[in-house]
């Protein structure tokens, strides 16, 4: 329960960072914090029943972790990583004409 609260707090921290931070790079970092929270939540849910590897070892039954969420979240990690890279490339391009990278300024310059 405590861990769950921590994980969700991380997610929310990231979310509010996206809203409250002015700088575009900070927003992207905040998004990464948020996705860290989400990933941790998957791992947490996977480990609810136990921590051991779900491979049979003789007759003994152990409290094992659920491999499915872990496997699934790997995809999300990779996707998150690539999206972040893509965003940073876009930010690099934008920074040439908007060196402060403040989203308000960029928005003002680029909305019709």
């Amino acid at each position: 329960m405590f861990l769950e609260a921590c994980v969700l707090a991380t997610t929310l921290c990231g979310f509010f960072g996206i809203v409250l931070k002015k700088n575009l790079v900070m927003k992207i970092v905040a998004m990464d914090v948020m996705s860290t929270g989400v990933i941790a939540y998957y791992v947490l849910i996977a480990s609810r029943d136990g921590l051991f590897t779900p491979i049979l070892d003789g007759d003994q039954t152990v409290a094992y972790a659920d491999p499915v969420p872990q496997a699934v979240i790997l995809t999300a990690i990779v996707i998150g990583f690539s999206i972040q890279a893509l965003m940073l490339v876009a930010v690099m391009k934008l920074s040439r004409d908007n060196p402060t990278l403040e989203s308000h300024e960029i928005e003002k310059n680029n909305t019709p």
Binding site: M31, A90, K93, L94, D97
Partner: peptide, 17 residues
Amino acid sequence: TDRSIWVALRYLFVSNV
């Protein structure tokens, strides 16, 4: 262009969150 990159970035950001 700057504008297209900004619009795209905004889109990706919103949809990713």
